[in-house]
Nucleic acid binder design. Structure first.
Length: 253
DNA sequence: ATAGTCACCTGAGCGC
DNA sequence: TGCGCTCAGGTGACTA
């Protein structure tokens, strides 16, 4: 339990994360409040503001005795008043740590974000409003954090398969009912992934150091050239928005 | 304003 | 065994 503990100090060993880590010197002695989350940002409130932590794709936090020798990729320690430290480890340094005085929503990173995907605010009406007259590929729309947060490349691929929608279709050409199906598919995909402990690939692991098992349930991602699980047609792999995109040319229209 | 591309970073996995 | 290359991912910055 971290809430209620006080910070002793914050040690930044490597400030060169996704953005330079620049924190106020006055964090020592401040008491931690209840930890929150917005999109993929962890919000750690203290008395005068909040630390905003993003784990990028390879980052994780662990709680260790504060005198544990740091490893190569241990970039930041949040030392507590009980001799422990919350340690940020991130080999690829796509993660970040920001500071924002209250209220945390004022931070520019959080200012223009769409609804949480599993909330009621993410519904057919919202997605239809975002898609209206837009020519952008529906997959790109789905991965746009201004539209909805939390949908990365893997889950966008899976949700589009589940909804039977081609990734490259212009968002504005989809009917409201199909967008509604897509909303449902996104929610189902994410809920199922959370249930399985998330998705981990290659060297990545979950917070407990073990892999997420959703990778075993992926039906299109990473399966380009293999048979579709539904119709056995060969899955197509294309390049879209700089990301590998896989779909079934038969099931997805 | 919108759409598309690029960059950041490192380790895994591959071919030689 | 070792070297060098390619790829993956989230997301803001940049270019048309």
């Amino acid at each position: 339990m971290l809430t209620g503990r006080r910070l002793r100090r914050v040690v930044v060993r490597n400030a060169a994360l996704r953005w330079p880590v620049e924190l106020p010197a006055s964090l020592g002695g401040q008491r931690l409040g209840p930890i929150g989350r917005r999109a993929k940002y962890l919000l750690l409130p203290v008395e005068s503001g909040s630390l905003i932590v993003h784990l990028g794709m390879s980052g994780h936090l662990s709680v260790v005795p504060a005198d544990t020798p740091p490893g190569k990729h241990d970039h930041v320690d949040f030392e507590l008043d009980d001799g422990r430290a919350v340690r940020l480890t991130d080999p690829r340094r796509f993660g970040s740590v920001h500071w924002q005085a209250h209220p945390v929503e004022d931070h520019w990173l959080l200012g223009d974000l769409g609804p949480e995907p599993l909330s009621r605010d993410f519904d057919a009406a919202h997605l239809a409003a975002c898609a209206r007259r837009r020519k952008v590929a529906v997959k790109n729309l789905l991965m746009n954090a201004k539209v909805v947060v939390g949908v990365g490349n893997i889950y966008a691929n899976e949700a589009l398969f589940l909804a039977g929608i081609r990734p490259r279709v212009a968002a504005g050409r989809l009917t409201r009912s199909r967008l509604g199906e897509l909303v449902a598919a996104v929610k189902a995909t994410l809920a199922s992934a959370i249930q399985s402990g998330g998705t981990t690939l290659r060297d990545f692991t979950g917070a407990d150091g073990r892999p997420g098992y959703f990778v075993h349930e992926l039906v299109v991602y990473g399966r380009g050239g293999e048979p579709c699980v539904r119709c056995a047609a060969t899955l197509k792999e294309v390049w879209l928005a700089g990301r590998t995109t896989v779909y079934c040319p038969q099931c997805q229209i």
